[in-house]
């Protein structure tokens, strides 16, 4: 479903590299964790998938689509196939939890009926029915991240890309978020997640890609956190 073909990313000084000749693929319905030290290239890798960053050489394919050949005007359309979750949540501060999720659907051109039906469902899935009309500033970190996940899944994307989703959360919130991601994966959505959290990886027992200095150094089917 996602295929990296010899992808390298050099910084503008031309010497240091964020990614070096990265090649791997992800099958549908997989749950892949990417681990590595800070600066190992995990986030750059995810940015390649959502076309926020361009490789210096190599190609990234989403199904049969060369991601970096998508014209700028078609990018929003492409991004609607992907749900994104970030360490810093990236919620719209002027919108309530409900409106944040509804915004993703509105941007997608869904009808009002669909929005009225799916947003409460997504909120229920992340167990936040009672906080629907709170603004992000009135929510805890774990709650914000759950809103972000609800927003990511509400358009039924093919894949969820999560960049350190538990990075800012306490252990209990971390556990909840990972459980929600696992539930989403069980429902048939591919999940790619970067993390620093050894506990999360060991608990999941799914595929783990280990990165170091922009290279993939390990790729285990049922991985442990090894660095």
């Amino acid at each position: 479903m996602i295929y990296f073909d010899n992808v390298s990313k050099l910084y503008s000084d031309g010497r240091s590299a964020a990614l070096q000749e990265v090649t791997f693929q992800i099958a549908p319905k997989e749950f892949v964790s990417i681990v590595g030290h800070s600066g190992a290239g995990k986030t750059t890798l995810l940015k390649m998938i959502i076309a926020e960053d361009r490789p210096t050489s190599g190609q990234v394919y989403f199904e049969s689509l060369d991601v970096h050949k998508i014209p700028r005007s078609r990018l929003p359309h492409y991004r609607r196939k992907i749900g994104t979750v970030f360490q810093d949540f990236k919620l719209l501060p002027n919108k309530t939890a409900y409106e944040n999720i509804a915004f993703a659907m509105e941007a997608n051109g869904r009808t009002d009926e669909e929005i009225a039906e799916n947003v409460p469902q997504a909120l229920a899935l992340v167990d936040l029915d009672d906080k629907a009309w709170n603004f992000p500033s009135e929510l805890s970190g774990g709650e914000k991240q759950r809103v972000a996940i609800a927003r990511a899944i509400v358009n039924q994307p093919d894949i969820i890309v999560a960049d350190e989703p538990t990075g800012n959360l306490d252990p209990i919130a971390t556990y909840e978020v990972v459980q929600i991601l696992r539930k989403i994966n069980d429902l048939g959505t591919t999940v790619i997640m970067t993390t620093h959290n050894k506990g999360v990886i060991d608990e999941l027992g799914r595929r783990v890609i280990t990165m170091d200095e922009g290279r993939i150094v390990r790729d285990d089917e049922t991985g442990k956190y090894v660095l």
Partner: peptide, 16 residues
């Protein structure tokens, strides 16, 4: 500006 970036990431078109 951050909001604008977020809107793009959730797939909102430029016009929207």
């Amino acid at each position: 500006r951050e909001e604008i970036g977020i809107m793009r990431l959730v797939g909102a078109s430029n016009t929207f």
